[in-house]
């Protein structure tokens, strides 16, 4: 007798051809034969009205900060495509880049909805949606990402260290942002928490592996940590805009998450037998840093490459 607990399955046909290895993975919807089903729109049913008590310009600027961190980090990760040490890592990094790109898209769209003035003007008739206009038609001074995410890629250890610092700080931020009075930000954060939890786990495991691996892997890891550490404090520094949106219950002051971020990093360092680096934060210019649009020249080169096709065809349909 076959198992009778799932009687909707017909008895196996002794004459049937050998099935696909994906049989049984598909649910009942054969139209998506190679894919999973039940995809969800993260903003389905979410109230998109702008909350009161916050200046639209502040909300837009804050969304740009969160979005640009994700967008620039995503682009740097995507530069690994076809170049990672192994095929499996190549896909893992691309997955993380896509998660962050998805967050950036929702946040850029939110910035444009909060304050249409942030969106660059495009020729009449351009089909470019606001989030694409923000990604591909802003100058570097209008980008509000921290400088940690924009510096050029180094070796794999460099990417692991950067992702650990970035994901640890962003996760603590998103966990708090999930309680935002702005329902869109809350929904984006709730979705992002699951994604960035995995990013942090990925980076933490590789940090430990490289630190406890060979002499060479440890040397590379420590060199990357030394190089990137001065950029880390910017992740948990408070910008005026962040202070105001936090006071309005819409955003999160990253300084309130700084202790938690530090504790997590200390745990990773301790498990890995790595000393917490010394080294002063990378200075801004007259107090201005990435959040104010002050960037390293690496960002302009990255943007030139990222934006060139979209800018060449402002009326293009893709």
């Amino acid at each position: 007798m076959p198992d009778t607990t799932h009687g909707s399955h017909p008895a196996p046909d002794p004459n049937a051809e050998h099935g696909s290895i994906f049989d049984g993975l598909l649910g009942s919807d054969a139209s998506q034969w190679a894919f999973g089903t039940d995809f969800e729109d993260p903003l389905a049913g979410v109230d998109t009205t702008i909350p009161d008590g916050v200046a639209p310009a502040d909300l837009a600027a804050y969304c740009l900060m969160l979005a640009d961190d994700a967008l620039v980090a995503s682009h740097r990760l995507s530069e690994w495509c076809s170049r990672a040490p192994d095929l499996e890592e190549d896909i893992a990094l691309a997955n993380i880049a896509l998660d962050l790109l998805g967050q950036a898209r929702l946040l850029l769209a939110r910035a444009a909805a909060a304050d249409p003035a942030v969106t660059p003007a495009l020729p009449a008739g351009s089909p470019v949606p606001p989030e694409d206009a923000l990604a591909f038609f802003r100058e570097q001074e209008a980008f509000r990402n921290v400088r940690l995410v924009e510096v050029p890629n180094g070796d794999f250890a460099h990417t692991v260290v950067r992702l650990l610092l970035f994901a640890t700080a962003r996760l603590a931020l998103l966990e708090r942002l999930a309680h935002s009075r702005d329902h869109v930000l809350a929904a984006v954060a709730a979705k992002g928490v699951k994604e960035v939890t995995y990013h942090r786990d990925y980076a933490g495991r590789w940090f430990l592996t490289l630190a406890r691996g060979t002499e060479e892997s440890r040397r590379r890891l420590l060199a990357a940590l030394q190089e990137l550490w001065p950029l880390y404090p910017e992740m948990t520094a408070t910008h005026d805009v962040e202070a105001r949106v936090a006071a309005a219950g819409v955003g999160v002051d990253p300084a309130t998450a700084a202790d938690e971020v530090d504790v997590v990093l200390e745990q990773v360092f301790a498990m890995s037998g790595v000393e917490r680096p010394e080294g002063a934060p990378l200075a801004g210019v007259r107090g201005r840093t990435g959040r104010d649009g002050l960037h390293t020249e690496a960002l302009s080169r990255m943007l030139a490459e990222m934006q060139v096709v979209a800018r060449a065809h402002p009326l293009g349909r893709w």
Binding site: H6, I21, F22, G24, L25, G27, S28, G36
Partner: peptide
């Protein structure tokens, strides 16, 4: 899979 009852070899 989500509605699959058993683990299936995928690769």
């Amino acid at each position: 899979g989500k509605r699959g009852l058993n683990h299936v070899h995928v690769g």
